[in-house]
Simulated scan of single mutants.
Amino acid sequence: MESSWLVLVSLALGLMVGAGFISLLQIAERHGRRASEVVNPAVPDGIDQVLDALDTAAVVLDPSNNVMKTSPAAVSMGMVWNRQIVHPELLDLAAKVRRSGEPIAEDLILSRGPFGDASMRVRVRLATLGTRYVLLLAEDRTEAFRLDEVRRDFVANISHELKTPIAAVGLLAEALNQAADEPAQVRRFASRLTTESGRLTRLTQEIIELSRLQAQDALSEPEDLDIDDIVASAVDQSRVVADAARITLAVGQPSGALVTGDERLLVMAVHNLVANAVHYSAEGSRVGVGVRHHDGVVEVTVTDQGVGIQEADLDRIFERFFRVDQARSRHTGGTGLGLSIVKHIVQIHGGDIRVWSQPGSGSTFTIRLPEASHTALAKTGETP
């Protein structure tokens, strides 16, 4: 009897010790898990989905500045390469955030990618994420800064361009008043006044036209147009000036191609190219205008035998108010807006414009537009 009681007591003590040991293990496990979470916390759930949804660049950095998470925009901007932040400036800001625990926002100029020469202007914001991580957000503001510069340049250029003819009109009006008793002088000053007035009118009209084109994203009522008719109308507008300079306007064979768009705008675009070719060509030379279409693309090419364009200027000739030859443009009444207008017209028609030039050998401008018949077949799925 006594032995049975001793056995029961021993079993009870064993169970109590075992239970106590298991409890100690559970407590130790909980403490270990909590310590692990403090030492090595996980990136909060849902961060991947948030980063994928962001338009701005976003990066999550660990204490060693390894990239744990990144958005597609951060990669495309060249901020992340080989799971590392490319720019040391960003790492310095991350270190400041870790030390202070306070968010930081700054504007920086950074290189675009680890090997690129191009720079970008970015607005960066950094803040702690959890107990160990740093969240970096970057907004590419390069285009916004560029547009601000373009606006400032545009206003400055307009002021400069308007100042010359306005001043000339004022001086000529004063000269007319003083020469009231001299008919020959009156006629001479009146002729110059008419020239300056016409130049001012053209400049104003082209500024208005360019502003309208820049605000227009698409054509309001496009229609199918015969490109040969457009070219003929554009060339006819330059025949008087060309004939006066003994410049031959040679038009190629009809192409029979159709394009979809606005007839007035397309005539203006081709005319601006032809007028430029005439203005920059020597007397007795030749300007060729041709049309061809292939693989659903219609090309209108204007070729001159003029002075040509320096390679350094080729990237700038479509800028507003840019002139290859300032003196000649002033003499011929050029505004520096013609090629910029051509570029915008072609763009809203879904095309592009290209230029080839060699100093001393002339220039060739090519407008490329989608062919209307090709577009229609593509939509219906038919084959020609």
Score class of each variant (00 low, 15 high):
residue 246 R to Y: 11
residue 268 M to R: 14
residue 183 P to C: 03
residue 373 S to M: 11
residue 70 T to H: 02
residue 173 A to E: 12
residue 112 R to Y: 09
residue 172 L to F: 01
residue 295 D to T: 07
residue 196 E to Y: 02
residue 156 A to S: 13
residue 25 L to E: 05
residue 129 L to S: 07
residue 294 H to I: 07
residue 47 I to C: 06
residue 285 S to Y: 00
residue 213 L to V: 09
residue 112 R to A: 07
residue 106 E to P: 03
residue 176 L to R: 13
residue 145 F to V: 15
residue 349 H to L: 10
residue 315 D to A: 13
residue 193 L to I: 05
residue 349 H to P: 08
residue 325 D to H: 03
residue 132 R to T: 11
residue 140 D to M: 05
residue 225 L to W: 08
residue 250 A to E: 10
residue 77 M to I: 05
residue 367 I to G: 03
residue 380 T to H: 13
residue 9 V to R: 15
residue 53 A to Y: 11
residue 42 A to I: 07
residue 117 D to F: 08
residue 316 R to V: 03
residue 77 M to S: 03
residue 120 M to C: 10
residue 44 P to M: 09
residue 74 A to H: 01
residue 73 A to H: 05
residue 14 G to A: 15
residue 285 S to G: 04
residue 170 G to V: 02
residue 258 L to Y: 04
residue 152 R to A: 10
residue 156 A to R: 14
residue 301 T to E: 14
residue 227 I to A: 00
residue 280 Y to G: 04
residue 286 R to V: 14
residue 25 L to G: 08
residue 71 S to Q: 09
residue 130 G to V: 06
residue 337 L to C: 01
residue 374 H to M: 13
residue 226 D to P: 12
residue 137 L to F: 02
residue 101 G to E: 15
residue 20 G to V: 02
residue 95 A to P: 04
residue 291 V to P: 12
residue 122 V to E: 07
residue 241 V to W: 01
residue 128 T to M: 15
residue 14 G to V: 04
residue 211 S to Y: 05
residue 347 Q to A: 15
residue 225 L to A: 08
residue 212 R to K: 06
residue 336 G to I: 13
residue 275 A to P: 12
residue 163 K to T: 05
residue 270 V to A: 04
residue 94 A to F: 01
residue 54 L to D: 04
residue 373 S to R: 09
residue 116 G to D: 14
residue 368 R to A: 15
residue 92 D to T: 09
residue 25 L to R: 09
residue 60 V to N: 07
residue 17 V to L: 15
residue 374 H to K: 04
residue 1 M to R: 11
residue 63 P to H: 06
residue 57 A to D: 02
residue 350 G to R: 09
residue 162 L to A: 11
residue 56 T to K: 09
residue 230 I to C: 01
residue 227 I to V: 14
residue 189 F to Y: 14
residue 380 T to L: 14
residue 353 I to N: 00
residue 309 I to E: 02
residue 152 R to S: 12
residue 203 L to Q: 03
residue 24 L to E: 09
residue 79 M to L: 10
residue 288 G to C: 06
residue 366 T to Q: 12
residue 92 D to W: 02
residue 20 G to D: 09
residue 261 G to T: 03
residue 200 L to N: 10
residue 107 D to C: 08
residue 71 S to C: 03
residue 352 D to E: 11
residue 163 K to A: 07
residue 315 D to T: 11
residue 47 I to P: 01
residue 14 G to T: 15
residue 25 L to D: 08
residue 107 D to P: 01
residue 380 T to C: 07
residue 231 V to D: 08
residue 147 L to C: 04
residue 39 V to W: 00
residue 234 A to K: 04
residue 95 A to K: 10
residue 36 S to F: 03
residue 328 R to Q: 06
residue 36 S to C: 07
residue 361 S to D: 04
residue 258 L to W: 13
residue 382 E to K: 05
residue 52 D to E: 15
residue 328 R to Y: 06
residue 180 A to D: 12
residue 356 W to G: 12
residue 290 G to H: 08
residue 134 V to Q: 06
residue 100 S to I: 02
residue 262 D to A: 04
residue 67 V to N: 00
residue 11 L to I: 11
residue 74 A to P: 02
residue 232 A to S: 14
residue 201 T to K: 10
residue 268 M to T: 14
residue 32 G to M: 09
residue 259 V to T: 02
residue 149 E to F: 06
residue 173 A to P: 04
residue 23 S to M: 09
residue 217 D to H: 13
residue 361 S to F: 08
residue 123 R to V: 00
residue 282 A to R: 15
residue 323 R to F: 05
residue 308 G to D: 08
residue 313 D to N: 08
residue 327 A to V: 07
residue 358 Q to C: 06
residue 43 V to Y: 06
residue 16 M to V: 12
